[in-house]
Design a protein around this nucleic acid. Sequence first.
DNA 1: CGAATGTTTCGTCGTGCAACGAAACATCCG
DNA 2: CGGATGTTTCGTTGCACGACGAAACATTCG
Lengths: 185, 185
Amino acid sequence: MSAPATRHRLAEIAALLAEPARAGILLALMDGSARPAGELGEIVGVAPATVSVHLRKLVDGNLLVVQAQGRHRYFRLAGEEVAHLVETLALAGARPLVAAPSTRADPLLRRARTCYQHLAGQFGVALFDRLRERNALLIDSDALRLSPSGARWLTEAGLLEAGDPVAQLPGRNCIDWTERRFHLA
Amino acid sequence: MSAPATRHRLAEIAALLAEPARAGILLALMDGSARPAGELGEIVGVAPATVSVHLRKLVDGNLLVVQAQGRHRYFRLAGEEVAHLVETLALAGARPLVAAPSTRADPLLRRARTCYQHLAGQFGVALFDRLRERNALLIDSDALRLSPSGARWLTEAGLLEAGDPVAQLPGRNCIDWTERRFHLA
DNA sequence: CGAATGTTTCGTCGTGCAACGAAACATCCG
DNA sequence: CGGATGTTTCGTTGCACGACGAAACATTCG
């Protein structure tokens, strides 16, 4: 579960985001753009030497990918997973991170709550179940795609526009910690 | 957008997760349990004095809430938002954070991609739209709930079990950066 | 009250790391 | 080839912070 290895890896990734300069770089790339080192340095307001070491760390940590092009080197986010991570962190910072909704000494609060309710998460799990019931998914190890019949069903249910390119995208099959079930991601 | 304030706040939160001891504490609480300082110190393997300052920082940063109880003080995650944050970070660390799927110098890759595709995100937005079309949501500033008729519709579509308590839960109304639209969270 | 237990505060030490200028390296252009 | 421009490496400095033991504080129990 929370084996020592897990927390070190978690801390390692978090540390990459824990410096304002690096956070600024990632935010600047959130629109999917690819930018050269110099420009990023200017955006976050540090010297070229400094931004260079930040970029190196972000690339080494697989948060960015680099693409050499002449005497420039263009950096961009390594993938949607990274974008999602930055997004989550940014949203957490946007709101004041709700203080405890109730600090009342209600003994009921003390019973172990085995999960946090998460509306979208539960819909994701429910949706996954329905899709699998209908053989609407093509499952291949941990990658999965919507089958044509599945796409049709979702369209009829009004959840998908006809011809929506999303239908073609591969999803990932992973365990949602909140639900401890497989879900769509 | 990525105003200096935003990146400092982001870095600030990330810094709280950037220490193995603190990451371990949060992971240990991911099951929703509330644990006293001493136990947490033992779990992550640091002296009482050390865990105390970590806990203080996590509470000050609104990631944990504390609940005094006799000579113990029980700590637990401050809310589902925090659980989601830790979960995202842990999942990012679990897989090797996909290296660039294609490093090919395809010039098409260089065009600005204005968004990252996110299957669940797009479903969330689509679902939100359908629900609003049907007046299935009771919207009150930035809180929202499913109306009875909305719950009925989702049940008929097979996305909700009859009597599912989720239907009673308030959702949040926030902008999804990926879709730049309101969505369910 | 006084001992036992759980927790925080204080003071100190050591290490990690961000920042910069200067210099090395690479690439384009005239 | 040589000068201009973009980027990285090197070496240094300074600060932030995690770790701990000792001592102070709080709470329960005998």
